[in-house]
Design a protein around this nucleic acid. Structure first.
Lengths: 111, 111
DNA sequence: GTAACGTGCAACCAAATGGTTGTAGAAACT
DNA sequence: AGTTTCTACAACCATTTGGTTGCACGTTAC
């Protein structure tokens, strides 16, 4: 059974903030396809290793990826559970919209 | 028929950045439930009218809400199409993860 | 043991963010 | 006509962000 923790505003902030950068979305894409070390990821972008390290830290702080030591390197892997949580957040807004449409339909039906 | 425009990195940046703030998410929630003027929205938050105005501008820049003049006020309404686009973006990452699982399953099946 | 590699972290810097106050214009009310 | 309401926008300010370089430390390779 899934625990389904409640997300605080700050946590949701971190998730969407982490997704609001093309480099971080690309890192998420790569690590969703397969684990990669930080230096391996850094090779792919036109910026310093430290910059990529910071991006990974932002993703990690949002819970979108986890890091596990493997020898001298750290393997970065995407956490699908957090992605699923973000999806459900957007579902909630879509639901609000649908409920609004339903209410408008009711009002129109009453006339 | 739906046009289904391709989203640029900058547009996706704006969508997720707009969602990365609790006040803006609440504005989106309120306007999804029903249109509201900027000043009506501003009453709900403990900050200046100008600050709320800026938040609405960020949501508008991301395409998550639209503003239409109604007398001297501007009605803010949520745009469900952009919310749906954001959902599909997250779907894409979830799909990547699923394809990875599938590949791992194949590898295990081969052994 | 020494050199090279991978990582983490601090210090620094320019630009963006999120808030403020103030000013000004258009629409509505009396 | 004059006042109030709603909105827009500029200027300003503190903090955060996203990048840099440099240094320290553990791990692997020779």
């Amino acid at each position: 059974m899934v625990v389904e923790t409640e997300l605080s505003d700050a946590e949701v902030d971190r998730i969407f903030h982490a997704l609001a950068d093309a480099t971080r979305r690309d890192i998420l894409r790569r690590t969703a396809l397969g684990d990669a070390s930080v230096s391996r990821l850094a090779e792919a972008y036109d910026m310093s290793f430290a910059a990529v390290q910071k991006h990974v830290a932002v993703l990690e702080g949002a819970g979108l990826v986890t890091k596990s030591p493997r020898g001298r390197e750290r393997l970065v892997r995407a956490d699908p559970a957090t992605i699923a949580r973000a999806q459900r957040l957007l579902d909630a807004y879509a639901d609000l919209w649908r409920s609004r449409i339903d209410r408008l339909d009711e009002l129109l039906a009453e006339s």
